[in-house]
Computed example of a mutant assay.
Amino acid sequence: MSWDTLFLLVNYWAIGGWALLAFAPRGPKILALVLYAGVFLLALAYAIMLGGFLTGTIDPGGPGGGSFTTLAGVMKLFDSPGGATLGWTHYLAFDLFTGLWIARDADNKGFSRVVQIPFLFLTLMVGPVGLLAWLIVRERRARAHAKARAGK
């Protein structure tokens, strides 16, 4: 399988998870599907690619090498089709997991799906910005829920 094909496959796989998260009924089965068929499989693909790169059994399709200790080293890691696909799969898995947490947290705090969609979209497109926005918005309701539980 080419790196271009694998890149498209992980993208479409992640989009499927995001579509379920945003638009499907949020029962336990759907949430488990997003977690295990979405996040788990993306994380598994990442682990297989990483293991293959580290052992030399998978060719990154470029210069390879690099490290996580310097900017130049990280740039070298991403300077191949395999390295870029590896990094992108990492982002997709963590962003989908974060989106799943946001959706569950928002449901627990009584936020409607209409209110949740912009935060999920931001998390899909610019992960940490979506998470930051959600953390800011949820704070007031989280405090109100904590007060209500303490008063019971």
Rank of each mutant, 00 (worst) to 15 (best):
M1W: 07
S2A: 02
S2T: 09
D4C: 00
T5R: 05
F7M: 08
L8Q: 13
L9R: 13
N11E: 10
N11R: 09
W13D: 11
W13R: 10
I15N: 10
G16M: 07
L20M: 15
L20R: 11
P25L: 13
R26V: 00
R26H: 14
K29I: 11
L31Y: 06
L35V: 07
A37T: 07
A37W: 09
G38S: 05
A43K: 13
A45C: 12
A45K: 08
A45Q: 08
Y46S: 06
A47T: 15
I48Q: 05
M49H: 04
G52C: 06
F53L: 07
L54H: 15
T55H: 15
T55N: 15
T57Q: 12
G61M: 07
P63I: 10
G64Q: 07
G65P: 08
G66Q: 04
G66D: 05
S67I: 09
S67A: 12
T69K: 06
A72I: 03
M75K: 14
M75Q: 13
K76H: 10
D79M: 06
S80A: 04
G82N: 03
G82Y: 01
G83A: 05
G83I: 00
G83K: 01
G87M: 12
W88P: 00
H90P: 06
L92D: 02
A93V: 01
F97H: 05
W101G: 05
A103C: 14
G110L: 09
F111V: 02
R113W: 12
R113N: 14
V114I: 11
V115Q: 08
V115W: 10
I117T: 04
P118A: 12
L120C: 01
F121G: 15
L122M: 13
L122F: 11
T123M: 06
T123A: 08
M125R: 14
V126K: 10
V126A: 14
L131A: 10
L132A: 14
L132K: 14
E139K: 12
E139N: 07
E139P: 00
R143Y: 14
A144L: 13
A146M: 01
A150D: 13
G151S: 14
